[in-house]
Write a protein that binds this DNA or RNA. Structure first.
Lengths: 197, 197, 197, 197
DNA sequence: ATTTAATCGAGACGGTACGTCATGTCTTCGG
DNA sequence: CCGAAGACATGACGTACCGTCTCGATTAAAT
């Protein structure tokens, strides 16, 4: 994701990218993202924390958003499995539960929250974030389609609405924090989404 | 909302607040908010557009967010009625529809979007926004409770989840814009929320 | 100096000028001038310290400078006598000594210093100050002329230069404070000015 | 004068100071200082005139005063020679004349006047200015001491007073402008200072 | 071994917006 | 009409980040 050699024709000359530096930047970004929950994270601060020049950051990531997203996806472990048990209800419940619980991770939560906040200002990051979440969304849609093909969902079921119910409720609660995102909530949400099926 | 006399004991001395200025600021804020969809709105720009000193803005609003929220609530017409037809389904459908369509207003939509973006960075505004929306949320909850008392909803229905489905889907679609927020969507969402009732 | 009634034709209508207020303003000005040696004195601060509205200050004095000068001349006692002993040397020595010592007064010195500093920025005050000092300067010139007429000074003596030596040295030492302004200094300066007479 | 490398141990890392920018700032400062005789010169205006970011000014000069003094001393040519002809009278006359005439330079005069005015408000600048003038003062004192050693001045002559007569009259006339600072004035002042020698 | 080129930390640079401060004018109400 | 309180337009202040740029030093492949 971050930075290809500028000239792909020639094999490669000159000093190679320092992987330790790369990691240091991602680590620093993730740490600052987690520490300053809500407060803006500056590139200067990340570079300073990583013991790195600012230019080095800009060399490998086109925008602050790209860096933050990279930090969250590469270094933080948001591992949501995609089950295929043969039951839509079981599959959906598992995904929702994993999403809910995975987002609550001690360092993941504030970082993810900050990332969402940054995306509000940075159109580039917003697009990246959407591209990233679209993959997962499509995966979950696949899960629903399989259920529909098995006859568990009505042929005319509004899958997009179901997806939006899932992610809408998730982000709404995650960002506002006014209601829990625990196992019970996952069960209730699953039931609500699959109510008449 | 903005600025009560500091000392309620004394009748009030000194020059009074200039209402024309007040309105000019709110109008300018709303206009700039609507015009620059997504782009940040600066206090300098608002003051300049309103023909007002920056200090005058800071005198009456503690933060940029507070001003923007004020601009949106006082000057923009987000008039969502709270019907009481005797049918939960009809009531909820009306509210959802009004919310969906009201948010699409030509100048309201970009302003509301900008406001949400600003709230992502400004904790003060986030709180104000939450306080503001909590009122409407409580009103809608009242609507649901009435239906529950009439027996239209199960006694154990998770009203909070229902509310979050409504507002979660609304904000999710409003901010991402990947799915419509039209009358049909309102109907489908209503059905989904009240699925098993 | 400070403020005539706006309409001199009509005997006088309305509330009369409050002398206590007048004094309070001058006192506050003098006090602040003395306290904040070097630091700028603001009209707001004076008004606040006098328990007075800002407009009341502006009503009676055309500029901050005028007020400060008023404060120094009316309230502070810079009483330099104008002796006429029949000897230029004695007269000049007395004036210089009185000027040197008078300017060292505990509250006078910082106030005068601040006044001079203010005059550097306020052309209006500079003019007032010059008009004020011109009176004294002319008085001292008269003293020298009398000596010249008595034959104590050469007919072609450069009186202006003598005056500038006096005031130049005074202000230079007063503002920089690198050399004393005591009785001995007065004697030496007198001797230097009258050296070849 | 402005800004040595912060850490003398390390050879120096990072981009070097842009001398063109440095000069542009000093030139702009001097020009504005000369143009706006008396009126305050703002950092914003200097930065704008130099085509430079405000921060760049603040990076290299701790205060507006330091910048202005720098501008006057580095860019403007206040070249007062220090003669050593073997005659105190000739030496002193030359210095006074050069000082008088040098200060009258078309762009120097308003700049120097503005500088003095700024110093009245800015203690930091006042100190800098004093440090700067102390060098010249000491040089002139050296001139007098040489004359004293040659027996041209009495052993007990008050050199400090002589210096103060020089600079006191100079600044007094320069700032007030009520009397000329021409060659004739220089001669008269020289005579007055050395009257009884 | 030498050349060539890309990396690195450091930090200067032109901008833009911030929130605060003082100025001098104005408006309001109570005396 | 006077006086206290304080709102108002203006404009400078010094700070914080932004993203770009320029340094000298380092490192590795190509010659």
């Amino acid at each position: 994701m971050a930075g290809a050699p500028p000239n792909p024709e020639r094999p490669h000359t000159g000093r190679r990218r320092n992987e330790a530096t790369h990691h240091a930047i991602l680590d620093a970004a993730l740490r600052l993202l987690a520490e300053s929950d809500g407060e803006a994270v500056t590139i200067d601060a990340i570079a300073k924390a990583a013991g790195v020049g600012k230019q080095t950051v800009y060399r490998w990531w086109p925008s602050k958003g790209a860096l933050l997203l990279d930090a969250l996806t590469e270094r933080s472990a948001i591992q949501v499995p995609l089950p295929d048990t043969g039951s839509v209800r079981a599959d959906l419940q598992a995904v929702i539960e994993a999403t809910f619980l995975g987002a609550q991770g001690k360092s993941t939560a504030p970082a993810l929250r900050s990332l969402a906040r940054e995306a509000a200002h940075d159109p580039h990051l917003a697009e990246l974030l959407q591209t990233f979440t679209a993959q997962r969304r499509n995966a979950v849609r696949g899960l629903l389609i399989r259920g529909q093909q098995r006859g568990e969902l009505a042929p005319g079921a509004d899958l997009d609405l179901m997806l939006d119910q899932f992610y809408g409720v998730f982000w709404y609660r995650f960002l506002l924090g006014h209601q829990p995102l625990d196992q019970d909530a996952a069960t209730r949400l699953t039931n609500a989404i699959l109510a008449d099926h």
